[in-house]
Design a protein around this nucleic acid. Sequence first.
DNA 1: CATCCACAGGACGTAGGACGTCCTTCGCTG
DNA 2: CAGCGAAGGACGTCCTACGTCCTGTGGATG
Lengths: 228, 228
Amino acid sequence: MPTRDGASLQERIVALIHERGLAPESPMPTEVQLMELLGTSRNSVREAVRALQALGIVEIRHGHGTFVGHASLEALTPSFAFRVRSGAGGIRALNDLVEVRELLETGLIGQVAQSTSAPRLAALEALANGMDRDREADRAFHALLYDSCGNELVLQLIGLFWDVYHEVEPTLGPPEERTAEIAVNHRRIVAALRARDPEAAREAMRLHFRDVKARIARAEARPEPART
Amino acid sequence: MPTRDGASLQERIVALIHERGLAPESPMPTEVQLMELLGTSRNSVREAVRALQALGIVEIRHGHGTFVGHASLEALTPSFAFRVRSGAGGIRALNDLVEVRELLETGLIGQVAQSTSAPRLAALEALANGMDRDREADRAFHALLYDSCGNELVLQLIGLFWDVYHEVEPTLGPPEERTAEIAVNHRRIVAALRARDPEAAREAMRLHFRDVKARIARAEARPEPART
DNA sequence: CATCCACAGGACGTAGGACGTCCTTCGCTG
DNA sequence: CAGCGAAGGACGTCCTACGTCCTGTGGATG
């Protein structure tokens, strides 16, 4: 079977990766080799590869070569960020995004409460206390929370949503006393975990997201915050 | 401020969409216009636009023009499908994906149980009964379930995960009596909704996903199912 | 002999031009 | 007035040439 030409170039390149059983980080054929393999011009090859790069399926290193990617959700950040920035429906989309994170985190926090080790609790507490100074601590906190669940997709989704939210967060207006709220909420979560109380942890998580959504609602109430 | 050249072409095009306040479906500048606006060659413009198309940020219609896209998650299907097809970790990734769907659906089904109208229930039941004949009925069932939640992102995520799962489902081996199981599980869910019993609905949903995950586990146990 | 540097080569990045294909529109024709 | 064909706009593909980045090699140097 030579190659049905019905499939798009993109699909044929992906098929090629699977046929050869190439693992992430493996080198892909050269652009010139792909030209010959697929019987097209370098231009078409490059466009297809660029599309695959945008999806995280391949990784391009200038001067070095093209490699199979990890299809990490990180690559998809621009798509989600775009959706959330879209004028009118943007705030709505942002709220949807936070609600999904709430669903994931309140769903998982129960099992986390039953299985978190003492050293991990200490690390979580340290992060919760450092949030005033370092905003990244918030991201690390949520990542560490679900690190033990063994679900890579959840970790990446939560990280993705965090990134997208904080990318547009400045446009939501002044933070008010939010930074204080955040630390309090996170300390409450840690306390519930320390008590190994799943229901209390879930409730603490709900409170946290209630505050986040309240901030979004305040932003929605105010007039269009002026475009860049 | 003319345009800082530090940003990638992609980012500059996205910025241009936001600056002009272009809504989805609006026509984008022509490739030639973008060349002039961004001061690059048509080749570079096309590559950047192709990347944005892969992310669903723009939509290209041959012979007609380029338009602002909806950044629908549908465009991201190839990325998720790739991740799930990746040889060794593929089954693991598929399981992660189903678990995320479980988190979302069990988290939402409670509020659905309290708010689903009679006609909607009838429609759900019809779909549940039609699953033996039409596999799409399953997809429609889950979409209709959460349609009333007002969260577009959840709908798209569940649809995306459904698509990805069913794209690789054939490789999981023979379906056994699964089709029967599916209908039973879904009828149980409808019954719980009809009784307006959130906890029963959640439990029925858990059972459904228990079966799905069991199928994945059986596939993981068997040897590599031979590549295409 | 070990080290450092210049250079050649491979691979991706950008540019410009030419032609093909698809779609729409307008004007001509019957 | 209806139908059809030509023209033009916009994306698709191809080709060629040159620039930039990285690596490995080989010679000059201490």
